[in-house]
């Protein structure tokens, strides 16, 4: 036991965990800054500028402000569930980072069932929303929770089905191996990324991912004109911050998963000295995820919200059959190519 703890391998693992946990936390904090800046620019405003240069210290100020805010627990709320809901929401959101490969060696653990592990973990995230809405014992949170959880599970289905096409090509559930399987080239010059082999699946994935994370144009949980702030209407202080953190973490997770499944993960041009060579894959990975996040933020700034019935209709009557058809077609082509 003691030897195991002092083992250099274990220390390396601990270092990885700390680096990834800290990195993710910092990234999530600055994501809020990035989002505010980008949206402000789209709307011809400067955005946060007061705290630090370019408002760079804004996330820290926000965090401190959250800390000192009053922690309101409404009367008639089911106190235990009300307090537990943000944690229930946050833990799964953070836990999925433990299997994401940020680089060839920067991965905490490569599970044989890594992809399914992420799906399992994200499917638990629904409970944070449901409990938060139900335990508040207030009307808007309840309605918001029902709506957004129904939306999440509907789009989780097409999200799950869209990656089956990729699996038919990669034949593995391990995330690192999926990335490795995309490292050859097509026709000699196009990288063999799954986005070129599975464009339909990619489209379905991106749409479902936006809906899955409750972001505009699918943010019915908190369509402020009708439901105030959705399931977290009653939440304040750090509990509210935890819900926000979970939302951003989910955003990063689905973006990272898109990068792994469709955009070749950490693959990218390699050059320079050896030290740079080890850092480059992570840089490419972060850049690809960054493009996704930027797309998310741009969507929020520019696209109007849909109507709830349109959303459900779109998910069930268009995306689901589309992803099923994609699976059938892909499997037929793979089978013919194999035999």
């Amino acid at each position: 036991m003691i030897e195991y703890l002092m083992d250099s391998e274990f220390l390396l693992l601990l270092l990885k965990i700390i680096v990834i946990f800290g990195g993710v936390m910092g990234a999530l904090a600055y994501l809020t800054w990035l989002e505010r800046k980008v949206i402000a620019r789209v709307q011809m405003r400067p955005g946060p500028t007061r705290v630090g240069p370019f408002g760079l210290l804004q996330p820290i100020a926000d965090g401190l402000k959250f800390l000192f805010k009053e922690d309101v627990i409404p009367t008639n709320a089911n106190t235990f569930l009300y307090v537990a809901a943000p944690v229930v929401s946050l833990i799964p959101a953070l836990l999925s980072f433990s299997v994401i490969p940020f680089g060839p060696s920067l991965q905490i653990t490569d599970l044989g069932v890594g992809l399914l592990f992420i799906f399992a973990i994200t499917s638990l995230g629904v409970y944070g929303i449901v409990l938060g809405g139900w335990s508040s014992n207030s009307k808007y949170p309840l309605m918001g929770a029902m709506r957004s959880s129904a939306q999440m599970i509907s789009y989780e289905l097409s999200l799950t089905l869209s990656v089956v096409g990729v699996l038919l090509i990669a034949n593995t559930l391990s995330l690192a191996q999926i990335v490795v399987s995309q490292q050859r080239t097509l026709l000699g010059f196009i990288p063999r990324w799954n986005i070129f082999l599975q464009p339909v699946a990619f489209l379905v994935y991106v749409i479902s991912a936006v809906a899955e994370t409750n972001r505009l144009p699918f943010d019915f949980a908190e369509s402020e004109q009708e439901l105030v702030a959705g399931w977290h209407t009653e939440y304040s202080s750090l509990k509210f911050a935890m819900f926000m953190l979970a939302e951003y973490a989910n955003m990063v997770t689905v973006s990272a998963l898109a990068t792994i499944m469709f955009l070749g993960g950490w693959a990218g041009p390699m050059f320079g000295p050896a030290l740079l060579q080890t850092a480059l894959p992570t840089v490419w990975f972060v850049l690809k995820v960054g493009v996704f996040i930027f797309f998310y933020v741009l969507m929020r700034a520019t696209v109007p919200r849909l109507r709830y019935d349109q959303l459900m209709k779109f998910g069930w009557k268009f995306l689901l059959p589309l992803s099923l058809a994609n699976i059938v077609l892909t499997s037929l082509i793979v089978a013919i190519a194999a035999s």
């Binding site: 069932v113 399914l116 799906f119 399992a120 973990i121 499917s123 638990l124 629904v126």
Partner: peptide, 10 residues
């Protein structure tokens, strides 16, 4: 993982 996906998640 399947147990969590189907049982807990659905």
């Amino acid at each position: 993982v399947i147990q969590v996906i189907i049982y807990a998640g659905a």
